[in-house]
Computed example of a mutant assay.
Amino acid sequence: MIDIHCHILPEVDDGSRSLNESIEMALIAREQGIKKIINTSHYHPDFRYKKGEELLKELKDFNNILRENMIDIEVLIGNEIYYTNDLIKQIDELDFYTLNNSRYILIELPPTNFPSDLCNIVYELKEKNYIPVFAHVERYREVQENPELIYEVIEAGAIIQINSHSILGKSGKELQRTCNTLISRNMVHIVGTDAHRSKRRTPIFLDAYKYVCEKYSKEMADNLFIKNNNAIINNEDLYVSKPCKEEVKKKGFFKRLFKL
């Protein structure tokens, strides 16, 4: 399996705090059946996180350490880019990495200033030859209250990612409920761990895969955990099912009559 959203590199953002913790995370990931990880360090205008060539050097050094310790996991380059109103205007000048240098760009939306024009953001990014992957959408209150937002951005051409911890209810029942709503309506394309630590927010994947297998189908789980993740690192088109609109329940004759 392939984890396309993880903060495994040591001391580059708010993820792993040390080399030892990064190695522990890699060992957990290996036990979970993960073979490749895209390190998606935060790219945020307000924080001095490592980026550009400095980030690439950290990645190369860590892959060497994994090989020296005979940990058969490969870490690939990427960023989780924090959306701002100036992002698209400045995007050609920024030194961020797409997911394994593909067309796919992982976008984190501001939780306290959630954009009202998500579809326009998708269109503008696609005009610049990027395919936006919206990260951990189940965490946003606006999505929890109105999943139709996700239907609309998928129709516009976005890819939707949710976290494995959320699927399992480890981040709260509301996030798990939102994940189930989105999965059942074909409005999820990718699952990632969004792992930050070796003791909490760990790279747990296998249990979430089994959960989707049992609750939905093995075909669904394979698409969300394996096939689409593999397509991203190879810069290929994803398998995207037609999303389902919410069914509006019609009121019966007597209910309408008594309401009158």
Rank of each mutant, 00 (worst) to 15 (best):
G157T: 13
H189N: 13
E219F: 05
V240T: 11
G192W: 02
Y83F: 13
Y82P: 03
E236M: 15
P147M: 02
T40A: 15
I77H: 10
L260D: 04
F258C: 01
P45K: 15
I4W: 06
D86K: 15
A158Q: 03
K250Q: 03
E80T: 14
I81V: 14
S198E: 01
H196V: 02
D237K: 15
K227Y: 05
K215L: 09
F114I: 00
V240A: 02
E148L: 05
A195C: 15
K251Y: 10
T40G: 12
E152A: 06
R201Y: 00
F96K: 10
H42P: 05
R197S: 14
N63R: 12
Q32M: 13
D237E: 15
M187P: 01
D222K: 13
N228A: 08
E54Y: 11
K245R: 12
L238Y: 12
F258Y: 08
F96G: 09
I204T: 10
I8T: 11
E219A: 12
I23A: 05
F258M: 08
I4V: 15
A231R: 13
E247N: 07
P110V: 10
V212Q: 02
I91P: 14
N186Q: 05
S171E: 10
N234A: 03
L76M: 06
I34Y: 03
E142Y: 00
I28C: 07
S217D: 09
H7E: 08
I37C: 13
N234C: 04
P203K: 09
F205R: 01
N100S: 12
M70P: 01
L168V: 06
K173W: 04
S184A: 14
A231M: 06
R256D: 07
L109F: 10
N129A: 06
L9N: 11
E174G: 00
Y130D: 04
P10G: 10
G172W: 01
S116I: 11
L87F: 11
N113F: 02
Q144G: 01
Y209E: 08
D222N: 13
S241K: 15
E24A: 14
K89Q: 14
K227H: 07
K126Y: 01
I105E: 09
K170I: 04
R17K: 14
N64W: 02
Q90G: 01
G172S: 05
K51S: 10
S166G: 03
S16M: 13
K242E: 13
P243W: 03
Q161L: 10
T40H: 10
K57G: 03
G33N: 05
R141G: 02
R30N: 11
